[in-house]
Design a protein around this nucleic acid. Structure first.
Lengths: 261, 261
DNA sequence: GCACTTTGTTCCGCATTGCGGAATGTAGTT
DNA sequence: AACTACATTCCGCAATGCGGAACAAAGTGC
């Protein structure tokens, strides 16, 4: 192209492009996908073939990718998993919350998750299901949108004014012209949380899934905002049950997890 | 402490150093550690301050690190967790094994784990505990040595001759002058597996922990070698019980998980 | 208060390092 | 064999990342 002027990002002398590209390759793997060819990786990342080849070579040497013997395709390596477990290990709240969540799930025959906000998403830190059979694979590390889920709405509603504005900016970019509608809905949810202490999402994120959410008061400020949800199939839980039985119990659970509140 | 001699490979034209360094920063975080300063990262990775500064800057921008507001320290970001969950999602065997493992753990009041070999380590892909209370934090993503654990010995014993030789080389480097002893012990364990079908580690990896292990026949060859263990506290399980009750049941579990064997 | 330490960020010239188009290698298909 | 599709390797170019040193900021001690 033409000579490159100092664009928004390209002037950034501190940004290490090669690292970013390598991570772009790793994040090209979507959950549930077994192995990807170099070609596919090039397409997804938008990087030239030879560059991808070098990056996969490097990542493989480091154990972050492993190459299937016969197909030659790459899969995520176990070194990546070690990183992920290090993340989880750094959140002590899981150790406190997990047993309580498990009791809750068994008692109410419902699934319960602990999440943390990351931008305009909630990332699941822990999930307890009522039954052993895993139906939907929404487990630790999954991301769900702040706007359309009960857990997201609970989290959003607990943000300080300044944090909320930042989140709004994030979502405005994310939703484009739909943002006004989304924002209206969010504001409505926030009012409900202020009044009743919990949020709802009845079939809005996933069809036939009823969910309520509550926020946890952050134990150490700046640590990120934590939140809980309880969710079950619509055939087993109607709106009344969710509001009158599950939601109060979930609020109780939140108080158990963070006693100082 | 340990200087990393990377001069051997420095000729490699395909190896992307900047990427490797960035990942070195990420992997400097050990499980259970909350936040690290730039200084500590520089020490651990052996990289110059300014380089670490650039890398942390880049990683933070990408969401793989997040910076604590007041202390300025870095912690692993939630983007890392997404990668980890993608790894887990790519192993379908977990979906098959998890419910069976859970039943097993409940029935025998013992912990059971599914692992996969990575070099001279076993990485846990799934863990089911008998009780809700989590004592030792050996969960998904943890690494345990091939040589001194029941699960590792089971895995080692199931390797083909060529694979075993490679693993031996790995461990020879790892254990240095202790390797002959370790190898003798491993060979002994292998003989036991060949005879009885399972391996033992009674208090050898962790004091007061009794464990037996079995290998899973790899469903697709080259996919890596999978293995199971069952482990419990020594006060509740003696060697006889482990050998006569737990081990046969674990072999049975393995057959359930991989029916075609 | 001021030196002093400790840690993090920014600068900037240098050359190393990574870049990517093109060429080459390797299967798999018709 | 000719052809397609994909991955790897080559290689000259220069952009990119490097790291020492200077700078900034935030604690300590006396």
């Amino acid at each position: 192209m033409s000579f490159t002027p100092q664009e928004d990002e390209s002037k950034d002398r501190l940004f290490v492009e090669a690292l970013a590209r390598g991570l772009r390759v790793l994040s090209a793997f979507r959950p549930g996908e077994s192995a990807l060819s170099n070609q596919v990786l090039a397409q997804r990342t938008g990087l030239p073939k030879s560059t991808v080849s070098r990056l996969t070579y490097t990542l493989t040497k480091l154990g972050y990718l492993s190459q299937d013997a016969d197909s030659g395709y790459y899969r995520l390596g176990l070194a990546v998993l070690a990183l992920g477990s290090a993340v989880l290990g750094s959140y002590d709240i899981r150790r406190v919350a997990a047993p309580l969540m498990r009791d809750f799930a068994l008692k109410h025959t419902i699934s319960v998750s602990l999440g943390m906000r990351d931008g305009s998403d909630i990332v699941y830190l822990e999930t307890c299901r009522s039954q052993a059979r895993v139906s939907v694979q929404l487990s630790v590390g999954s991301r769900v949108p702040l706007a359309s889920t009960a857990i997201g709405r609970a989290c959003y509603s607990s943000l300080s004014a300044t944090e909320r504005e930042l989140a709004d900016i994030d979502m405005a970019a994310r939703y484009g012209k739909d943002w006004p509608l989304v924002q209206a809905k969010l504001e409505q949810a926030r009012q409900q949380v202020l009044q009743r202490g919990y949020s709802e999402s009845f079939g809005e994120f996933e069809r036939d899934v009823m969910a309520v959410g509550v926020a946890l008061p952050s134990p150490a400020p700046g640590q990120g905002s934590l939140c809980l949800n309880a969710s079950g199939p619509a055939f087993a839980f109607d709106a009344d049950t969710m509001r009158n039985q599950v939601a109060p119990a979930l609020l109780q659970l939140a108080r158990q997890i963070v006693p100082g509140a």
